[in-house]
Design a protein around this nucleic acid. Sequence first.
DNA 1: GACTGAAAAATTGTATACAATCTGCTCATC
DNA 2: GATGAGCAGATTGTATACAATTTTTCAGTC
Lengths: 240, 240
Amino acid sequence: MVEPKSTRQKSKTQDQHIYEEIFDAILEQRLWPGTRLKEESLGEIFGVSRTIIRRTLSRLAHERVAVFEPNRGAFVAEPDVSDARQILDARRLMELAIVERVAERASSIKDEFKKLYDLIEQEHKSSAAADKGTAIRLSGEFHLELARLSGNKPLEGFLHSLVPQTSLIIALYQAKEGSRCAIDEHSRLLDALKLGDAEEAKRLMGEHLDHIEERLALDESPGNRNLAKVFGRRTEKAGA
Amino acid sequence: MVEPKSTRQKSKTQDQHIYEEIFDAILEQRLWPGTRLKEESLGEIFGVSRTIIRRTLSRLAHERVAVFEPNRGAFVAEPDVSDARQILDARRLMELAIVERVAERASSIKDEFKKLYDLIEQEHKSSAAADKGTAIRLSGEFHLELARLSGNKPLEGFLHSLVPQTSLIIALYQAKEGSRCAIDEHSRLLDALKLGDAEEAKRLMGEHLDHIEERLALDESPGNRNLAKVFGRRTEKAGA
DNA sequence: GACTGAAAAATTGTATACAATCTGCTCATC
DNA sequence: GATGAGCAGATTGTATACAATTTTTCAGTC
């Protein structure tokens, strides 16, 4: 068994690859909320038939990152203000629980912290290079890696759907630009985790999430940014 | 628009129906962990092509209720002891958070409690009729309805995957038979919720979950019940 | 009788064909 | 010029065809 011998053996990997490509594009905000995801276009891009694309889209839809509109196709989700509040509420719950579990296991998984340090370092680099898209994605990956280290696969899976959804919320509702304090926050959080200090880690994570939410304009006041939603229309951008 | 005019309009409903049929069969433990889910058989049963069945199975797989084995098909999941612990941990976290949120909203959603009372009544009936399958399913539905009343769709969706997984765990690892105290626990929980007493409701929910877990034999001692898993074999029951 | 291996049957995985639906355009009508 | 019916093209939704893979069957051998 040296190499996969047929095209079929790659199937799982192939699927995963297409999924991650779209997932990353959303994290990096190259794919905007409301963007249409045309099946044939995607199929051509990735060199597969609509069957495969459809499966990927249905996975994204199940994670609420995309939405199917009957007979009209799939679109990148556009969480409204109420959705956003629920997503952020759920995310806070998850992140605190995850941090708690990582802190508990800190001593037994010390070796696995390496990737977190790597991610922070990469975050610094892309921040210095003003590569905003990459920086945002890396920040998301930091949280996903934490979830993995929680040792709880269901929690990890759930956060995996909440992270890109948060990305969409930021795309839609971020009012103030974020400084790069987020990286320092990640860094301090990691220090607390390494020491197994669950309370401090939870406090830091809570503050970190506060800062993310503070930059959002989630009030439903008339001067709202998200006009498309106010009038219930579609943004209708071309899909690749 | 009086009636759906074509077969296609039913698609969403059709999908949902097949999904729920399988979902319920798992909740009622008519579908045992490890059961093979053959695509063509299911297609014949529900009168649709493999395309539709495949989509349903892929949804179940995403919710970790089913598992795809490459080139071998889908099987009802068989969570091992480690999976079980993670699932129960996640479920406790979710249920406490849900109960907290329902209690908070209690005064504004008082009308919506009706379905919970109905479910408890039905639970009593099926318990009296010794209809174990239905009783188990109704218990699950009680928790799902609570999740709905939390007003948080992501949390609801996550619990929707944890409930059938718990059902599989019980099928695999339950040692002692449960008395019907669960119904009384639901009843008392609902009373506390109606009063908006979050702390008491959380306490009761915690105890309720304790009781479920107490009946499980999750120790990995040799005298373990789950021999198939110990030897890493498939159970291989016919799929419908 | 147990074991091996090759052919046959069954089943999954992917692409494609076709039907249903939606979108956009043209053109007649006012 | 605005409005709306109706046709043409584009796109999705489902079934089916075909290829890859696994499972079963059944000789033949020891």
